[in-house]
Design a protein around this nucleic acid. Structure first.
Lengths: 259, 259
DNA sequence: AGGCATTACGCTGGACGTAAAAATT
DNA sequence: AATTTTTACGTCCAGCGTAATGCCT
C-alpha cells in the first residue's frame, strides 16, 4: 500500500527533475527525498528510476507511475474534500431565495429554531433557485410563485421612493406604466425584483450599485427615484416619501419549499 | 493527506462494526485501531464517529467517508497493479499465436535474441489473436492468413496419423472428404487447427484430451486416428504412419506480426 | 463475567537532519 | 567551485503492544 506523501514527492520529481528541487519544494532534506524515492520503488516493487553516480531519472515505468500517482493524489484530495463538504452540509441550513426580504424574515427564525446549525442564505434568480432546490444543493427555497410542495410564506409590496419635491411625489399611487422611462437607482442582489423592474420598465435606465453604504449615500445625494418595499428596513430613507405601486406584479407572495 | 493503511481500517470498521474485530482482522491490538480511527478523524478534520462510553459507531459523514475511502483504496490498488503490469510488459515479449507450432519455432529464437526478456506464448483462436494484437496486448502475433504489415513466417502441413493396419493406412494420400466421418483423437490447444478440423469434418466426432501425457497414452492404446504435422515433434508416434492430407487447407502458411 | 473502547506507559523502529563522500559539470 | 545523489550516523518521535481502567450487557 503506497504512502501518499511519498507519491506527492514522486510526482514533484517527475515535474522538477531533480531530488534537490523536490526537497526544496517540500522544505525537507535531500537525503529524505532520496529515501522516499527508494521507499516508493520498494512499495511498487518494480524499478522506477535509472540511477547514475550523481544522477537519477525516471525510467518509462517511473514516468507512467508518476502520472498514475498524480491521478490517485487528485482522487485522494477529492475524497477529503467530499467528506468535509458532507460534514459542512450537516451543520448548515442553506436557504436559496429569489429576493432578499424573505431571508431577512427567515434566517433569524431558522437560527433560533436550530441554534446548532449554521444558517446560510443566498439570493439567486428564480431559475437558479429552482435548480438548486432540485439538485438538493439547498435545504430551503423561496420563490415568487407556487410550486408543488411549496407553502405561502409572506407578501411583499413594492414602493417607489422619491424626494418630496419630485414630480412623482404628487401622485397618491403609481403604476409601472407611469414610472417607465424614469431612471432609477437600483441595489444589486435584489434577485427577482431586478428582473421584474427591467421587464416592466423597458424604457428606464438603472444605475446599479452593489455596496449598501454607497447606495444609501447615492440616494441621499441625488433626487433619482429608487425602490423600497414594506420589508425594506434599510430603505426607509428620511426625507423621502414612499408611494405604493398599484400593479398586481408589485405585490408578491413568496412561497417556501422546505425539506 | 490521509494514510491509506488507516483508511483500510476505517473501511473494515464500516464492514465489521467493532474496533476489536478490525484489530483481529489486521492482527494488531485494539488500542492501535482506536488510535488509527482518531487519526483518520484528525486527517479529515470532521467528526466521523459517535462515541459512547464503551461504544463507537460511524455517524452519517463517517459512513459516507468509509465508502469514499473504499473507492480510493480500490484506485490505489489499481495504481499499483497498473505500474507492476507496465513493468512486467517491459520485461516480457508476449506472443499470441493461432497454433502451437509457430510458438515452438519462435519462442526459442526470441529467447536467444532477447535473453534479458521473458518470452511468453499463448495459443488463441484467430479472432482473439487479432484482437490482442490490435489492443496492444501482445508484441508478436501469428495468424494463418496475411494481414496488413504481416510477413510470411513458416509453413505447416497436416498429416493423419494411424496404426499401419488401419483402413486409412492403405491410401498414399488423404482428403478431408475421405476422413470425414472417422472419429479422431484431438489434442486441445491446437488453436486454429481445431476449428479447421471441425469445419472440414462435420460428420466426425472428436475425443478431446488436454493433458499431453494422457493424450500420448491414448494414441498408443487405441487405434483411433489422430493428427500430426511436420512440426509436431511430439507427434511422431512410433508404430504409426503419417499420411499427408492433399487439401489446400491442410497446408498452412503462418504470417507473423511484430512490433 | 465477558466484551468493548479508551487511557497510560514503556519500548522500538522508522524517519528526519547533519555531515561527509563521491561524482559530474 | 558548485551541484547532485547517496551513505553514515545520531536523534527523536510516532506508532506499537501490554496492562489497566471504566463501562455496558
Amino acid at each position: 500500500m503506497p504512502n501518499l506523501e511519498e507519491l506527492r514527492q514522486l510526482v514533484a520529481f517527475a515535474d522538477l527533475g531533480t531530488l534537490s528541487r523536490v526537497a526544496e519544494k517540500f522544505h525537507i532534506s535531500t537525503p529524505s527525498v532520496t529515501r522516499a524515492m527508494q521507499h516508493v520503488e520498494d512499495d511498487f516493487a518494480v524499478p522506477l528510476f535509472i540511477r547514475g553516480k550523481n544522477k537519477i531519472e525516471l525510467n518509462e515505468t517511473g514516468k507512467a507511475a508518476a502520472e498514475y500517482a498524480r491521478k490517485l493524489l487528485q482522487e485522494a484530495e477529492q475524497t477529503v474534500r467530499q467528506v468535509r463538504e458532507l460534514d459542512r452540509r450537516r451543520h448548515t441550513v442553506a436557504v436559496c431565495s429569489c429576493a432578499p426580504a424573505p431571508l431577512w424574515e427567515l434566517l433569524p427564525k431558522l437560527n433560533a429554531q436550530r441554534p446548532e446549525m449554521t444558517v446560510s442564505g443566498s439570493v439567486c434568480r428564480n431559475d437558479a433557485v429552482l435548480a438548486a432546490w432540485q439538485a438538493g444543493e439547498c435545504d430551503v427555497a423561496v420563490l415568487p410563485f407556487p410550486v408543488e410542495g411549496a407553502k405561502p410564506f409572506m407578501r411583499e409590496n413594492l414602493f417607489v421612493c422619491v424626494p418630496p419635491d419630485h414630480a412623482l411625489a404628487k401622485l397618491p399611487k403609481l403604476t409601472f406604466a407611469t414610472i417607465n422611462g424614469f431612471n432609477f437607482l437600483l441595489r444589486t442582489e435584489l434577485g427577482f425584483w431586478d428582473a421584474l423592474c427591467r421587464e416592466k420598465m423597458p424604457a428606464s435606465k438603472f444605475l446599479v450599485q452593489t455596496d449598501n453604504a454607497v447606495f444609501d449615500e447615492l440616494v441621499n445625494a441625488s433626487s433619482l427615484p429608487c425602490f423600497t418595499t414594506d420589508y425594506n428596513k434599510l430603505g426607509s430613507y428620511p426625507g423621502r416619501v414612499n408611494i405604493p405601486l398599484a400593479d398586481e406584479a408589485a405585490h408578491v407572495t413568496f412561497y417556501i419549499l422546505q425539506k
